Simulated scan of single mutants.
Amino acid sequence: MDPEERFSALVDHFEGAPGVTAPGVGGTRGFGSAALKVNGSIFAMLSHGRLVVKLPRERVVSLIADGVGSPYDAGKGVPMKEWMSVAGGTDELWRALGREALDFVGARRR
């Protein structure tokens, strides 16, 4: 499965969850326009064929150290502390990271 198909499956998985908005809803353009959001905040998106998720900084550091992902810099050359990207992986990994990101971002936006 290519990254676009895998992300589409992730969107389908989370669509309908409380507070979750699918990509393209709301007509926004630019950063985050193709992202999964909870209560208006991005928790997962596809960028350059990679899953990008927002997680606690310590969790991002740990996952990168374990080789699960790499720092995400949004094209500015400076890693964003609470974001990481994942190339490849399994559907299960993407769903688990997506759930973790949804829980993290959703808890912050209540």
Score class of each variant (00 low, 15 high):
Arg110Asn: 00
Glu15Met: 11
Arg50Lys: 15
Leu46Thr: 06
Lys81Leu: 11
Val53Thr: 02
Ala74Leu: 11
Ser47Arg: 05
Leu63His: 06
Arg108Ser: 09
Ser70Asp: 12
Pro56Glu: 08
Glu92Tyr: 11
Gly27Phe: 02
Arg50Ile: 09
Asp66His: 04
Thr21Lys: 13
Asp73Leu: 01
Phe7Lys: 00
Met84Cys: 07
Val52Gln: 01
Phe104Tyr: 15
Ala107Gly: 07
Leu102Ile: 14
Arg108Phe: 00
Val105Cys: 13
Lys81Gly: 06
Gly88Glu: 03
Leu36Cys: 03
Val60Asn: 08
Leu93Trp: 09
His48Gly: 14
Asp66Cys: 01
Gly67Pro: 12
Gly49Phe: 11
Gly67Thr: 13
Asp91Ala: 10
Gly98Trp: 02
Ser62Trp: 14
Ala9Thr: 13
Ala22Ile: 06
Asp2Val: 02
Pro23Ala: 08
Asp66Phe: 00
Gly67Leu: 13
Ser62Lys: 15
Lys81Arg: 13
Leu97Met: 06
Lys54Ser: 09
Ala34Arg: 15
Trp83Glu: 07
Asp73Asn: 05
Arg110Leu: 09
Arg29Gln: 12
Val52Ile: 09
Val78Leu: 10
Lys54Asp: 03
Trp94Met: 08
Ala96His: 01
Ala9Phe: 10
Lys37Ser: 06
His48Gln: 14
Trp83Lys: 05
Gly19Glu: 12
Phe104Thr: 11
Val25Asp: 13
Leu102Val: 14
Gly106Glu: 11
Glu82Ser: 08
Ala9Ile: 12
Lys54Trp: 00
Gly77Ile: 15
Arg99His: 15
Val53Tyr: 00
Arg50Asn: 13
Arg6Ala: 02
Arg95Trp: 10
Ala35Gln: 12
Leu63Thr: 12
Val11Asn: 00
Arg95Val: 15
Gly77Cys: 14
Gly16Pro: 02
His48Val: 08
Pro18Ala: 14
Met45Asn: 04
Glu92Pro: 04
Lys37Leu: 09
Arg57Ile: 08
Pro23Ser: 05
Met80Ser: 13
Leu63Arg: 08
Lys37Gln: 08
